[in-house]
């Protein structure tokens, strides 16, 4: 007789991107982001997805050795993206897949979603978790595109997630500008989580040591069986915007508010 937990093994994938540090000033070279000049880190917003995936499995028996479930990190990016992946592994994910290929340099969201969907499709996952946005591309479309490509349920902009592994269902509250929606679906589903959902853990010393032994399976396009098309949106030109001209600065000694109003009036803003 199988123990009940074996009847509901959950396989969760988390899509993470390595991005230039969001605190750094960025610039373009030949129509693409200059990635060499800035520090690369795990997309801050994807840390919330890693954390949420870990909380989901921990609430149902865990993913450590002997635990019922697993969390796999999936990333598309250059070889050095392994650094960002290690951070996710040191938080507690089990293993990782990195799709890295020179043909993918400068990939747009269409290609990125095709690559990620291809890997997810063959991995037998129940749930895929993403961040809401990569802090460099800032498109907020990849999770919806993955869902569209796979024909899986789309549960994005989640402010809370409740999973029932026995019933193979997941419910979220979707939080956007428009309001709050309660929604649910059966597995498999693609989720994205907002940054108010949790507080990502810091990797423990034990976690960091353990992450060094975890597998990062690096594959190229041929290995996942995908041929890459060129980007469908082409950059014609890019230029740094002229810096704002130095403004006026006054120290308030009782008249600051009045001076502010005079400035607005001078500019015909009131």
């Amino acid at each position: 007789l199988l123990p009940p937990s074996n009847l509901c093994l959950m396989k969760i994938a988390v899509c993470v991107k390595q991005v230039p540090d969001s605190w750094a000033e960025k610039k373009m070279i030949n129509g693409t982001l200059d990635r060499e000049g800035v520090d690369a880190v795990l997309n801050d917003l994807d840390e919330y997805a890693v954390e949420e995936a870990l909380r989901i499995v921990e609430a149902h028996g865990g993913n450590e050795e002997g635990g019922a479930h697993s969390v796999t990190i999936i990333s598309m990016g250059p070889e050095r993206a392994t650094e960002a992946i290690r951070k996710a592994l040191s938080m507690g994910a089990n293993d990782a897949i990195l799709i890295s290929d020179s043909a993918l340099a400068g990939a747009d969201a269409i290609t990125t979603s095709a690559v990620l969907a291809k890997v997810i499709e063959t991995g037998g996952f129940d749930l895929v978790l993403c961040g809401t946005e990569s802090t460099d591309a800032r498109m907020s479309v990849v999770p919806a595109m993955i869902s569209a490509r796979l024909g899986w349920a789309q549960l994005t902009f989640a402010g809370s997630v409740v999973v029932d592994p026995a019933a193979s269902t997941v419910a979220i509250t979707r939080v956007t500008d428009a309001g709050v929606d309660s929604m649910g679906a059966s597995f498999p589903a693609v989720l994205s989580v907002i940054e108010k959902i949790n507080e990502p853990r810091y990797p423990s010393f034990k976690g960091i040591m353990a992450s060094k032994k975890k597998t990062i399976d690096v594959r190229d396009c041929a290995a996942i069986g995908i041929s890459v098309q060129g980007a469908w949106s082409l950059v014609a030109d890019s230029a740094p915007r002229p810096a704002r001209a130095a403004g006026i600065k006054v120290t308030d000694s009782g008249d600051g508010g009045k001076e502010l109003v005079d400035f607005l009036a001078g500019k015909k803003l009131i």
Partner: peptide, 22 residues
């Protein structure tokens, strides 16, 4: 916005089209 961009993304996949956001 979140809703508009997600719709645009899905339509791009369904119609084999490129997409520009923002």
């Amino acid at each position: 916005h979140a809703f508009g961009k997600e719709i645009a993304g899905r339509v791009a996949i369904a119609t084999d089209s490129g997409i520009i956001t923002d």
